[in-house]
């Protein structure tokens, strides 16, 4: 599967998924624009795709992202994964839609959105949406917002890490679990420093 970095807003805000591919949002684009809105249009039967958005928000760079996986052709599949880390006074506003048209039988589409809060005074807007018009489909979404788990911090501290180190490790792992799925090493290498998780 090819990996495509989305570093500018596509024309008419639509990307046609005509062959199987992995799409990764450039964190610079997400932070640089007021709103980033992209519809992924599945009108070629049998294509499969992954949509990945990873970002770390701080006070100066709120992120407003809208993605839509719109399935029209049959037997397409999509997996949307969003990971956001919120630092002091930051905002993450994410709307992620899965739309399955009546014609799109045998669709699989999933969305998984997680916000990890590490700072104070943070704001989250989260709107995972399903619009399902067909029944021969598999679709689900999950969305979580929460601080770093206390028992996890304690477990890592019991192995000799300071609280800050433990939190840093959890943040790193939070992104790493998705970065690990990015096929193209250059894209992965490009993202790491932007997420503040270069090599320790």
């Amino acid at each position: 599967m090819r990996t495509i970095l989305i570093d500018k807003i596509p024309s008419k805000n639509i990307i046609e998924v005509s062959s199987s591919a992995q799409y990764v949002f450039d964190p610079k684009l997400l932070k640089g624009q007021d709103v980033v809105e992209v519809e992924f249009l599945f009108n070629t039967p049998g294509v499969t795709s992954e949509i990945i958005a990873l970002y770390s928000c701080d006070e100066l760079s709120p992120v407003k992202l809208r993605t839509s996986a719109r399935h029209v052709a049959r037997s397409t599949s999509c997996n949307t994964v969003v990971r956001a880390v919120l630092r002091d006074n930051s905002l993450s506003d994410y709307l992620g839609k899965i739309k399955i048209e009546k014609t799109a039988i045998d669709t699989s589409s999933f969305l998984d959105d997680a916000v990890l809060v590490v700072g104070k005074g943070t704001h989250t807007r989260s709107d995972p949406i399903l619009e399902i018009e067909a029944n021969e489909v598999k679709a689900s979404h999950g969305s979580t917002t929460g601080r770093v788990d206390e028992s996890m911090l304690y477990y890592l501290e019991s192995r000799g890490l300071t609280r800050n180190e433990a939190e840093g490790l959890i943040v790193r792992g939070f992104f790493e679990s998705v970065l690990g799925n990015i096929k193209e090493a250059s894209v992965k290498n490009y993202l790491e420093p932007l997420l503040g998780i270069g090599e320790k």
Binding site: K120, H123, R125, L130, A139, S140, H141, G142, S143
Partner: peptide, 18 residues
């Protein structure tokens, strides 16, 4: 579902399946 979370200590989980 819409989630509006203006507090950094909240623990929110949402899951939906069709």
């Amino acid at each position: 579902p819409t989630m509006k979370i203006d507090n950094d200590t909240a623990q929110i989980e949402h899951e939906a399946t069709v």
